[in-house]
Amino acid sequence: MRDKLVEFKNVSFRYGAEHPWVLKNCSFEIYKNEAMAIIGHNGSGKSTIAKLMNGLLFPQEGEIIINGRTVTRESIWEIRRDVGMVFQNPDNQFVGTTVQDDVAFGMENRGIPRSDMVKRIDEALSAVGMQEYQLTEPHKLSGGQKQRVAIAGVLAIFPNVLILDEATAMLDPKGRTEIMKTVTDVQAQRNLSLITITHDLHEVVQAERVIVMNEGEIWDEAAPRDIFAKKAELRQIGLDVPFIAILSDELRKAGLPVANEALNHEELLEELWISRSTM
């Protein structure tokens, strides 16, 4: 069995007693080295989950356990050694005058020796393809480059969990693809648990498991292929369906025996090739 890294046990949260519940009795687990996606429409509670994992918020009901420790106001600084978060707007995370200063910031707060910091800066920037920009001022970078630096700053503290909270929302399609490839490569190299929080279903195909949030509750939890198969239901809760899934359905209607739910163009082409070979 895989080791649990994150546990939510009957967690509920609201932003004040006079406000409605944003999360309602949510329970789930995330395992070590797992790639998990959390999706849902705006206001479904997915970003609140991210903030609860990192101790930016605390639940009114239920319990959150990270790497065997319950998240409390007393334990939060230790919890944050395990959990790194990258937000939607990288400008909100920059504090240094140069790229290397910014990557060093989190390590300075943790009292990491300078010799170790120099090594980690180099390793983290190399991991995201930004090593040659060490002395560049952050405001001179493109949006995708800024997000890479933000990821490097998190990687430098050696977290066990990397959370991307809508981290590609401000990028163009090419930038999104590049960032997600960078992150999945880093996850494989570092054996991190990766949690991608997004409303873009195209980003979840590389996840092992998907949690779908709707109105503060867990609507479904399954592998991406099983989630994408529920096209009509996803539309009913305000989520779009990837083009490749729509195309697969249209091909079936046209009489082509496309048996499996394709997650990408390569899988669909493979299905069509198999179908052609057996006709």
Results as ranks from 00 to 15, higher is better:
residue 2 R to A: 13
residue 4 K to H: 10
residue 4 K to L: 05
residue 5 L to F: 09
residue 6 V to I: 15
residue 6 V to Q: 08
residue 9 K to E: 14
residue 9 K to N: 14
residue 10 N to I: 05
residue 10 N to D: 14
residue 11 V to F: 14
residue 15 Y to E: 03
residue 16 G to C: 03
residue 16 G to F: 06
residue 24 K to Y: 06
residue 26 C to A: 14
residue 29 E to T: 14
residue 32 K to F: 00
residue 35 A to C: 07
residue 36 M to P: 05
residue 39 I to Y: 09
residue 40 G to C: 08
residue 42 N to F: 01
residue 45 G to W: 10
residue 48 T to R: 07
residue 49 I to V: 15
residue 53 M to E: 09
residue 55 G to Q: 04
residue 67 N to I: 01
residue 67 N to S: 10
residue 70 T to M: 11
residue 74 E to W: 04
residue 75 S to F: 05
residue 78 E to W: 07
residue 80 R to C: 00
residue 80 R to T: 00
residue 80 R to W: 04
residue 88 Q to I: 00
residue 94 F to M: 06
residue 97 T to Y: 15
residue 98 T to M: 07
residue 100 Q to W: 12
residue 101 D to H: 15
residue 102 D to M: 07
residue 107 M to C: 08
residue 110 R to V: 00
residue 112 I to C: 11
residue 114 R to N: 12
residue 115 S to Q: 15
residue 116 D to S: 11
residue 122 D to F: 12
residue 124 A to Q: 04
residue 126 S to H: 13
residue 131 Q to K: 15
residue 138 P to Y: 05
residue 140 K to R: 14
residue 150 A to H: 06
residue 151 I to R: 02
residue 152 A to P: 10
residue 152 A to W: 05
residue 155 L to A: 06
residue 157 I to S: 02
residue 160 N to Y: 01
residue 160 N to F: 00
residue 161 V to R: 08
residue 161 V to L: 10
residue 163 I to Y: 13
residue 164 L to D: 07
residue 169 A to S: 14
residue 169 A to Y: 11
residue 171 L to I: 03
residue 173 P to I: 03
residue 173 P to A: 03
residue 174 K to Q: 13
residue 176 R to H: 09
residue 176 R to F: 10
residue 177 T to I: 09
residue 178 E to Y: 07
residue 180 M to P: 11
residue 183 V to Q: 04
residue 183 V to A: 01
residue 184 T to Q: 11
residue 185 D to A: 11
residue 186 V to L: 06
residue 186 V to A: 13
residue 187 Q to P: 08
residue 189 Q to P: 10
residue 190 R to Q: 08
residue 190 R to T: 00
residue 193 S to K: 11
residue 195 I to V: 15
residue 201 L to Q: 10
residue 203 E to C: 05
residue 203 E to H: 13
residue 204 V to H: 02
residue 204 V to I: 15
residue 206 Q to V: 00
residue 207 A to Y: 03
residue 209 R to S: 03
residue 210 V to R: 09
residue 210 V to L: 07
residue 213 M to R: 09
residue 214 N to W: 12
residue 216 G to T: 06
residue 216 G to S: 10
residue 216 G to C: 09
residue 228 F to S: 01
residue 229 A to S: 10
residue 229 A to F: 05
residue 230 K to F: 00
residue 231 K to A: 05
residue 232 A to Y: 09
residue 232 A to C: 00
residue 233 E to W: 03
residue 237 I to T: 04
residue 237 I to F: 12
residue 237 I to D: 08
residue 239 L to P: 07
residue 242 P to V: 01
residue 243 F to H: 14
residue 246 I to W: 10
residue 247 L to W: 05
residue 248 S to P: 04
residue 248 S to T: 11
residue 252 R to W: 00
residue 253 K to Y: 02
residue 253 K to R: 13
residue 254 A to E: 05
residue 254 A to M: 07
residue 257 P to I: 00
residue 258 V to Q: 02
residue 259 A to N: 12
residue 262 A to K: 02
residue 264 N to A: 04
residue 264 N to L: 02
residue 265 H to W: 11
residue 266 E to Y: 11
residue 266 E to S: 12
residue 269 L to I: 12
residue 270 E to K: 15
residue 271 E to M: 08
residue 272 L to I: 10
residue 273 W to L: 13
residue 275 S to Q: 09
residue 277 S to Q: 14
residue 277 S to M: 13
residue 278 T to W: 08
residue 278 T to Q: 14
residue 279 M to Q: 13
